[in-house]
Design a protein around this nucleic acid. Structure first.
Lengths: 186, 186
DNA sequence: TGCCGTGGAGAACGCTCGTTCTCTACCTTA
DNA sequence: TAAGGTAGAGAACGAGCGTTCTCCACGGCA
């Protein structure tokens, strides 16, 4: 028998749940499909998580951390504060290149589960305010006014959804171009 | 007995479906709840529509027309081409004031049903390309380059989702401010 | 070796869904 | 009045869901 700790099983479930929920939306993924994908028994699944809603919540929290870390890699690669702001659109363009890019998982979850789950709504609001804050901090470092940060955040959000819907990285590039203009002309 | 034609019953079903699907997401609304809300028998419901997926599709088509007409009212009220472009953000700010504003119904439907329904995906793409085209036409009338139209469209999209998530018209106003800046400085 | 406790496999449960079918009441028309 | 057809109410059905329970195999330990 392959030995796996609860921690490892937890991570396998979260990884599978994140992937499946994002690709197919939460209500389209059954707990049994999840169990099979994670290679875990149904008993253990319910022993590790309080239920589907709690699982969705944890998946979103985990994804928030993962995305933050990944975008950081792009941001820290840049030298000037301006280039750091623009780097988040490079991350988006690269991400949209991968198959099955489906836009912002938080917006998607809010659309599907927001009306019925306060916990999901709370995590989504938290992520959005985090992204907004991160962009605001970078823009502040450039010395531009705060409304520029607001604008770039909204460009980012609009590009995320439309990059998914059009299945093209064009919106990401258009948003980056607009952000560059805003930074250069203020 | 109250006499109702099939056309009237159809419209009642579509109105109820649009309202409920938008407020609670499609999978959270059962056909029986819909039947009760529309005041129609289950038999007639299935006689008027081929099934739930077809109903969602028709609801989105109908909403696309309705939103186009409503925003037109705002646009035509404005005198200059620049003010016409900015008027769509007035529409958004006003709409978000109504209770139960949930952002863009097309983005929401894409998030929930896009992976499982090609028909829904097609309607969503159609609506997005329509909005993008309408903004492009208005921006072209101002003499600004096309990338300005792309930017304003993405600002619009980002503001739609974040106006819903933050339950505030602030993103709509921020996007309008950014759009005004883009128009004035190009 | 015999016992106990843990854990996995998957059957079972209760519920809700989308969809169809049955039955009955009523209106129309001859 | 009698017959026929239409439409509504809602029961029925099969499937799938989230969740729980049963059963058994297997390992550690006295």
């Amino acid at each position: 028998m392959v030995v796996t700790t609860d921690t490892e099983a937890r991570e396998r479930v979260l990884e599978a749940a994140d992937r499946l929920f994002y690709a197919k939306s939460a209500h389209a993924v059954g707990m049994d499909e999840l169990r099979a994908e994670a290679g875990v028994s149904l008993k253990k699944l319910y022993q590790l998580f309080d239920g589907k809603e709690a699982l969705v919540e944890e998946v979103l929290r985990r994804r928030e951390e993962a995305i933050t870390a990944e975008t950081m890699k792009y941001v820290l690669r840049a030298s000037t504060p301006e280039e750091q702001v623009l780097a988040v659109f490079d991350w988006m363009a690269d991400s949209s290149g991968t198959t099955d890019f489906r836009g912002c998982a938080f917006i998607n979850s809010y659309a599907e589960l927001g009306p019925s789950s306060d916990r999901v709504t709370a995590v989504v609001r938290h992520q959005k305010s985090g992204v907004r804050g991160a962009i605001a901090a970078m823009v502040a470092a450039t010395g531009r006014p705060e409304w520029v940060a607001d604008s770039i955040f909204l460009l980012f959000e609009g590009a995320m959804t439309n990059t998914a819907i059009t299945v093209s990285s064009e919106p990401a590039r258009q948003a980056q171009k607009a952000a560059r203009f805003l930074l250069e002309s203020t």
